[in-house]
Design a protein around this nucleic acid. Structure first.
Lengths: 320, 320
DNA sequence: TATCAGTATGAGCAATTGCTCACGAAACAA
DNA sequence: TTGTTTCGTGAGCAATTGCTCATACTGATA
C-alpha cells in the first residue's frame, strides 16, 4: 500500500500548500492554480480538501467568539432552543451584569413584533434588572402575564415582582397575579386558583409565546427565604429533600425533577410553561446558582438560557 | 472618550459575531445579515472587519513535506536546535508573510508553559508582524524583556519596538530598554548601561530562556539606515568593512563574525544571548536578507531559525 | 484486446462575495 | 443657522467561488 499512502501524502501536501496560499497568503484560486500548475478547478478542490480534512483551523480571538461557542455547545448538550452567553466580568460581583442587558435585548426582539404575542414573566432580582434595561416602547398589541404572585406573606407587594415595571415600560396590557407565591395550604392554593380574577391569567400564562424567568438557588441564603416566602425550617426541609433550586417557587432536585410535597404542594404560581412551541428562557448566572441552572436545563424545565461565560463553562464541564 | 470606546467595542463585538457565524458556523453573509438584522453589505463589512482587525486567525495544521525536509536539513547543516520552514508565495512581496504567523505560533507554545519563563525580544518589522499574530493570553507568570532600545535618534519611540505590543497581548511583566539603539559614543554606551534602570534588564536578558529576534540586512536600504539609527556614511563604512547583516544593531560579516569598531563600539543593545540552554530564534526570510541569515547561522549567532522555503533552499545551496 | 468500474478533470453555471460609487445622516465649524 | 466634512449605508456590478455534469483516463478483468 506504499504507493497509495505516498499518493495520499502528496495529495494532502498539495492541499496544504493550496490552503496555505489561499488562507494565509490570500491568493485567489486562479493564482494558486497558476502557481501550482493546475487548473482552477483543481485548485478549488485542493483548498476544499484542505478544509474538509481539517488542515485549516480558523479561530476567533475575541471574547464574543468564546461566548458564541459556549452558547452553541449549551444548545447541543442540553437540547436548548435558545442560548445566549455574555462575557464574564471577573471583577464584578453583580449577579445580573450582562445577563440583564442581554435579557432585555431578547425581550425587545420579541416585543418588536407587530404580531400580538403573549409574554410570560417570572420574578426575581435578575428579571428586575433586565426590565430596567428594557427601552421604553409602544406595544399595545402584546400581553404580558405574570407567572407568579406579588403578595408577600405580610400582605405587602413583593419588591421583586416585575410585571408592573415591564407593563409600564412597554405599554402593553398586563396581567398580574394578585396571589402569594406560596399559599398556606394546598387547599388555599386550589381556592385561590379558582378565583375569577386568577383563572384567565393562568390560562393566558399557559399559552404564552415566550417566557422569561429567573432561577433561584436554595442555599442558606436562598432568595425564597430572604424574601420571606419560606421559613428557615421550610428551607432546611427543602434542602434535606434534595432541592437545589427553584423557579417561580417550584423546587426541584439536582436532576431537575420537581419535588413532591413540602412547599411544592402549596406553590400558588402558574406552572412553568411547557407547551410545544413555547420558548421558556431562564436568566441566571453565578456560581451560587450554577447547580440550580444545571438541574433546570438537565430536567428540561426551561428550553432557553441566558447566562455568562463562566457559568456556561461550568455547566458544560459539570455535565460532561 | 467613553462613547467612542463603547462604539468601537460594540463594533468589534458585532464584527466578531459576524466572523464567528461566517467562519465557524459556516453561514453565508446573507444568512448572517438576516440573523443580525442588517443588510448583506453590512454583514460583509463586519466579516471583513473581523479579518482586518485580526480577530480571525487561520492556521494550517499540516507540515508540508518539503518544508519539513528543508527544516531538518537546516538543522543538520548549521547545527540549529530549532528550525521551521513555511511555504513561499512567489508572488508576494511581503517580507513577513508566513514567518510572522509561524513565529507567533512558536511564541505561544513557549508562553503556554505554566513554569515562569523569561522571553527576550528584539525589534524589527518581522517581529512586529509576528506579535500582531499572537493571540491574547494571560501570562502573568512570564517576563518579556527587550534586548534593544526603543529610542530613535530624534528622541521619539522607535516604531518597530515591539516589547510593549507583546506585553499588551499576553499580560506579562515587561522590561523595556529606555535606550537608543546606538549610542553616540562608546563612553555614552557604558554610562547608559550602568544606569539603575538598565542593569537589571540586561541581567534578565542574559538569562532568557528563549529569544526571538529579527535579522537586518546591510544593503543600501538597510533597515538600520532607513530608521535613522545609522547615517549613510556609517552604513557605507559598515559595508566597506565587510558587514552583511545586523542583529539588534550588532553588525557581522559574511562568516558571522562580529565587526570590531565602527558602530559596534557604540551599540547600546544587550548582547545576543548565547548561554548554554538559551534558545535564540531568528525570524527572517527573503533574498535580500539571505546573506545576513546565512552569516548568522554560520557564525552560530543564533541557534534557531524560522524562514520560508525559498530562503531555506538558498541557504542550503549557498553553503553546500 | 475489449470492457467496465472507479476516479480525476475541465467546462459551464449559479451562488456568493468584494468593491465602488453615490446618497444621506450625524458631527463639526463658521 | 448654514455650510462642510466625515462616516456609514445600500445599490449595482464585477470577480470569485462552489457545484454539477459530461468526458477522459487508469487499471483490472474476462
Amino acid at each position: 500500500m506504499a504507493p497509495k499512502r505516498d499518493n495520499n501524502n502528496t495529495r494532502l501536501d498539495d492541499a496544504a500548500r493550496a490552503g496555505w496560499l489561499y488562507y494565509i497568503a490570500g491568493n485567489t484560486q486562479d493564482e494558486i492554480a497558476a502557481k501550482l500548475g493546475v487548473s482552477r478547478q483543481s485548485a478549488q478542490r485542493m483548498v476544499s480538501l484542505a478544509v474538509t480534512e481539517g488542515l485549516v483551523k480558523v479561530r476567533l480571538d475575541h471574547p464574543i467568539a468564546n461566548c458564541l461557542d459556549l452558547a452553541s455547545r449549551l444548545k447541543a448538550q442540553f437540547g436548548l432552543r435558545f442560548a445566549e452567553v455574555v462575557p464574564t466580568d471577573p471583577a464584578s460581583s453583580s449577579t445580573t451584569l450582562g445577563v440583564a442587558e442581554a435579557g432585555a435585548e431578547e425581550m425587545a426582539r420579541w416585543l418588536k413584533s407587530s404580531e400580538p404575542i403573549v409574554m410570560a414573566i417570572g420574578t426575581g432580582r435578575t428579571l428586575k434588572a433586565a426590565i430596567e434595561q428594557l427601552s421604553p416602547m409602544e406595544c399595545p398589541q402584546h400581553k404580558v402575564v405574570s407567572l407568579t404572585g406579588n403578595i408577600a406573606p405580610d400582605g405587602s407587594a413583593a419588591f421583586y415582582n416585575v410585571i408592573f415595571n415591564i407593563a409600564d415600560a412597554i405599554h402593553a396590557r398586563s396581567f398580574p397575579m394578585p396571589l402569594p407565591v406560596i399559599a398556606s395550604s394546598p387547599e388555599e392554593r386550589e381556592l385561590l386558583h379558582t378565583q375569577a380574577m386568577i383563572r384567565p391569567v393562568l390560562e393566558l400564562a399557559a399559552r404564552a409565546d415566550v417566557t422569561f424567568l429567573g432561577i433561584g438557588d436554595l442555599g442558606d441564603d436562598a432568595p425564597l427565604y430572604l424574601d420571606g416566602f419560606v421559613s428557615q425550617a421550610e428551607l432546611k426541609a427543602l434542602q434535606k429533600a434534595g432541592s437545589v433550586g427553584e423557579i417561580l417557587g417550584w423546587s426541584f432536585d439536582s436532576e431537575g425533577r420537581m419535588l413532591e410535597g413540602l412547599t411544592n404542594e402549596r406553590v400558588a404560581s402558574a406552572p412553568i410553561p411547557s407547551g410545544g412551541n413555547a420558548l421558556v428562557i431562564a436568566l441566571a448566572k453565578g456560581a451560587k446558582k450554577q447547580p440550580a441552572i444545571a438541574a433546570a436545563v438537565k430536567g428540561r424545565l426551561v428550553n432557553g438560557l441566558i447566562t455568562d461565560e463562566a457559568t456556561a463553562a461550568a455547566l458544560l464541564k459539570s455535565e460532561r
